[in-house]
Design a protein around this nucleic acid. Structure first.
Lengths: 202, 202
DNA sequence: CTTGTTTTGGAATGATCGTTCCAATAGCAT
DNA sequence: ATGCTATTGGAACGATCATTCCAAAACAAG
């Protein structure tokens, strides 16, 4: 009943996450994981019941290691439209740091491969979507409180619109290295949000 | 040197396309293809050099069987903003016809799974993106000719924005069956386009 | 050192994969 | 009927997969 020590376990999940993120669940073999993570087969199976459980751990780790640092600015108690702008600019900076196209979003990549029967995975994907939707919605609602141009349901619609737009951004970021286009897209999106909320553009 | 007759060949590719669309390239096995298409192993390999070649044929067939019927309205010589609206409404109608979430877009699903080294596949994905980008751009440029509110480069930016937005729409359509949200998203997008082009909203 | 635990590296297993091959069958022309 | 071709169904193959197992090595504590 050997169990990996915590630091080793984190390093394992981090390396596995990187592989799953770039190549997708099915394309990564156990042999790849052993080679890239430097952790032996025995140790992997002593901590995870199998490949799928390890993948789920990676999805969870992705939340705390990637999503939270990027999105927490929107989730803060006083976040408004400015926070959404900061979030998007962080995404752009991250994308521009790569030379080629990046790996996009692990959650959206997974969504494109998973079948509806895989409930465990689907639940995590849905939780991610709900998290973003809620965060954006609250930030927009807070911003709307100032001028009160929109009804509550209109704010919710606008939040959903923003969420889908960001999904398009992620999808595009995996296909192209044209960061100027991504930046222009963010500008247009932010301009739309400002207009709807009754703020001056820019 | 047996070769499938044309109708049989089309039926094979159509069935394979359906599988690849729903489950993704790697999740579909040759056994699945034999079972679902009703075509024997020997016949498949007599017409295609392997699984990958069959998949490429499916990507090509997806263009002519799915993309062209939906997108040709935008590619017509006199297409404008109204054509883009029709295109989007067809997408919504298609999505609403399903009861659960649909399979999204085969091209975008593939983009989320493919690695950059797979040049043959990547070329097809890029061609798809270029096709949509060009069609949208020309339609918007034609619409802009009337009022001439935008510079040429602004029209190109707007076309790119529209393309990415549509990608978000596809991505979302695979994850949720909330067609009302999709419809609202399209409305917002069209409203934005009309505003930018100097037209009255709605 | 010795003892006990953790981790390793790799062999073994059974399943499934893509691919090849071919005798048997079906269809269609003559 | 006879021949020719198209298609089938499935056996066979080697590769690779996820998973299991375990003897050896590494390590920690006494």
């Amino acid at each position: 009943m050997a169990r990996l020590k915590s630091p080793s376990r984190h390093a394992l999940v981090d390396s596995a996450l990187k592989l799953f993120w770039k190549q997708g669940y099915r394309a990564v073999s156990m042999g790849d994981l052993v080679r890239e993570t430097g952790v032996s087969r025995g140790s992997i199976y002593s901590d995870f019941s199998g490949k799928e459980a390890l993948f789920h751990a990676c999805l969870d780790r992705y939340q705390e290691k990637v999503v939270t640092p990027a999105f927490s600015v929107v989730e803060e108690k006083d976040a408004g439209l400015r926070a959404i702008r900061h979030y998007l600019e962080n995404l752009l900076a991250r994308s521009e740091a790569h030379r080629g196209p990046d790996s996009g979003c692990l959650v959206l990549n997974t969504l494109a491969q998973v079948t509806n029967e895989d409930a465990e995975t689907m639940a995590r994907l849905r939780a991610h979507g709900d998290r973003l939707q809620t965060g954006i919605h609250q930030a927009l609602a807070r911003e709307n409180k100032k001028l009160q141009r929109l009804e509550d349901c209109e704010v919710e619609d606008l939040a959903r619109f923003t969420l889908i737009s960001i999904q398009g951004l992620w999808s595009q970021s995996r296909g192209t290295k044209d960061t100027a286009a991504l930046r222009q897209y963010c500008d247009t999106l932010l301009d739309l949000l400002a207009t709807r909320l009754g703020l001056a553009g820019g």
